[in-house]
Design a protein around this nucleic acid. Structure first.
Length: 576
RNA sequence: CGGCCAGUAGCGCAGUGGCUAGCGCACUUGGUUCGGGACCAAGGGGUCGGUGGUUCGAAUCCACUCUGGCCGACCA
């Protein structure tokens, strides 16, 4: 490609809203252009890089026996009503009506559509396993897109769906994707860790997220450096110490003004772990069949030395969304903010008790009376409720597996895999007959990778103070050819020789100074640069320079094609 | 959806009531340069986000609104 006719240009200054290096360089180098919040065009360079990424995706998916298809972006709402997600997903999914006044949605994922396909395709156990994928545009109306391509509203996703007759089959294909995803990220050059995660709105039990660990990440990842345990903080477990003693009689004490655990433990001269604290939320419960919403007050109880992980609380409470409760709502539930506990609360309150609280004895808890607490509260005797792990894991807490201290880091989710089970097949009547003629639901899995987000993470990972430094596997071009000689015919000839040899070349044929060309080349970040200068040209040579190391080599022009291919082979070794 | 900030040339910004709205980069033309963002000269480019108001006079003050960004809520 000749740069003189390329549909993009470089910028000397960063756009005002570029807050990370990777994003700044993608914009300045001309890979991407923002149209509005969370909506970007891919310019030629970005489009080519994405093409390199999707090539890797296709190769790895095809190798699993995954067949590529394309499902519609616009779905009739009917199938989304069948699974209930038409009602349970909030405004993140955009809806509209067609001319006949029928409900339509912009599909933000394709479980519904592919289940619709599968129920026509699959009638017998003999038809499975089946596996399809697509690489396609998704629209999710995120309330707050940010950080360039990291979190956007319109994006390209590779999403696969598996159909199996049983859980054993699902586990097998899940493992195959688990491994394939590591190969994909390895080939693209992005370091990732797989973490156990929450399956959120997707449903299902087992899921993993592939995280690129970086300070720009929005997810918090809990890891154990000792044994390798990793999990998203939303679901991360940890070892909780508990001590049991004989239950003592419930006793009410005056604790004026002690509305916080610090205040309370200071006042009573006890340790925070001898107390229980409460968090009040209002959960929305949606009836999947018709979208009817009901709201219920939820109280979560953890020991005073821990905090509540709201995601765990929401899962334990089995509601579809949650918000902090207002003071009046808490009072209406028979409890008092600041002095709250489930003791004496109204019947319809959802009580979720952390397992460490249930396993402890004689905790101090609120008396639901302004200025008073109970001594010696005990789960089971004084109050009841669902017991679950709802405490938030933190750095320094103990690993649930090996007991060593945990670490906390930030990460960007670049891929995820879910064992969906039969949630969608049962809801959408996707059944098959087994050998015994019995009707069984198809067991499904889904597997996603965000393509643009992957590019954004690569741009974060691979840059220096001059611009991008992309791995060959995802670089828009293999070679950046920069002639500095006046003889355009000679440089055109070098260019066409490279192109004929099947090498992807970006050719800086612009009438610019050497400095400008070098600076733009640094910014664009193609791994190998060929510089044709007057002196070396006279000697029948051309200079090759590696973007990442700055190392240069002189190549003989007569052996140009072979020598460049050898250097590219070297580069692909590095990233493999 | 709440809090805060910002919308002036393609990009980055200055201009806080008064002549024809400026600067840097980018762009055009001519000339000199030519291996790390060169220089000289001459140019082109603006409904100051929008609407309404205050005023003799508004980019500037007020109201509303739209858009973008940051923090939070939210989020596969």
């Amino acid at each position: 490609m000749r740069m003189s006719s390329m549909f993009s240009k470089t910028l000397r200054e960063a756009p005002a809203n570029a807050d990370t290096k990777g994003y700044e360089y993608l914009v300045r180098a001309g890979y991407i252009n923002q149209l509005s919040a969370g909506i970007f065009s891919l310019l030629p360079l970005g489009f080519r890089s994405v093409g390199k990424i999707t090539k890797i995706l296709r190769e790895e998916m095809n190798a699993l026996g995954d067949e590529e298809i394309q499902m519609p972006v616009v779905n009739s709402a009917d199938i989304w009503k069948e699974t209930g997600r038409f009602y349970s997903i909030d405004r993140e999914m955009s809806r509209f009506k067609d001319r006949r006044d029928a409900d339509m949605v912009l599909a933000m994922t394709h479980e519904e559509c592919c289940t619709y396909l599968a129920r026509q395709m699959i009638d017998s156990y003999k038809r499975m396993p089946l596996l399809v994928y697509q690489i396609q545009t998704k629209w999710r109306d995120d309330p707050r897109p940010r950080a360039g391509l990291i979190r956007v509203r319109e994006f390209t996703m590779k999403d696969s769906y598996s159909f199996d007759r049983d859980v054993a089959g699902l586990e097998k294909v899940y493992k195959a994707h688990y491994d394939a995803y590591f190969r994909i990220f390895k080939r693209a050059g992005l370091p990732v860790v797989a973490v156990g995660s929450d399956s959120g709105m997707m449903g299902g039990k087992v899921s993993h997220e592939y995280m690129y660990l970086s300070p720009i990440g929005e997810d918090t990842i809990i890891t154990c450096p000792e044994c390798g345990y990793t999990a998203n903080r939303q679901v991360a477990r940890f070892r909780k110490s508990t001590q049991k003693e004989e239950m003592k009689a419930l006793e009410i004490v005056e604790t004026p003004g002690a509305k916080t655990i610090e205040g309370l433990s200071g006042f009573l001269k006890i340790r925070p772990e001898q107390t229980a604290k409460a968090l009040f939320m209002v959960g929305t419960y949606i009836d999947d069949s018709d979208g009817t919403e009901t709201q219920r007050l939820i109280i979560g109880v953890v020991r005073g030395d821990m905090d509540i992980e709201e995601n765990k609380l929401q899962n334990a409470a089995r509601c579809s969304s949650m918000r902090p409760a207002q003071e009046e709502e808490i009072l209406a539930g028979g409890m008092v903010p600041g002095f709250g506990s489930p003791i004496g609360c109204k019947e319809d309150v959802v009580v979720i008790v952390d397992d460490a609280v249930a396993a402890s004895t004689n905790l101090v808890a609120g008396a639901n009376k302004e200025g008073f607490h109970y001594l010696n509260t005990n789960y089971g005797r004084d109050y009841s409720g669902t017991v679950a792990d709802i405490a938030q894991a933190k750095e320094g807490y103990l690993c649930p597996v090996c007991g060593k201290p945990l670490k906390s880091s930030k990460g960007v989710e670049v891929g995820n895999i879910f064992q969906l089970g039969t949630r969608y097949s049962e809801a959408m009547n996707c059944f098959y007959q087994d050998e015994n003629g019995e009707r069984r639901p198809v067991v499904m899995g889904s597997y996603g990778i965000g393509v643009g987000r992957l590019l954004a993470c690569l741009a974060e990972e691979y840059n220096d103070d001059k611009g991008l430094v992309l791995p060959l596997s995802v670089s828009p071009y293999d070679v950046h050819f920069i002639p500095l000689i006046k003889d355009a015919n000679a440089s055109d000839e070098v260019y066409s020789r490279l192109v004929s040899a099947g090498i992807d070349v970006l050719y800086d044929d612009r009438k610019e100074s050497a400095g400008v060309k070098f600076a733009d080349s640094d910014l664009i970040g193609i791994p190998l640069r060929l510089i044709l200068g007057a002196r070396s040209f006279a000697e029948g040579k051309i200079e090759a320079k590696f973007r990442s190391t700055g190392e240069t080599r002189m190549l003989l022009l007569e052996n140009l094609e072979e020598e460049v291919k050898a250097l590219l082979a070297e580069l692909s070794q590095v990233s493999a």
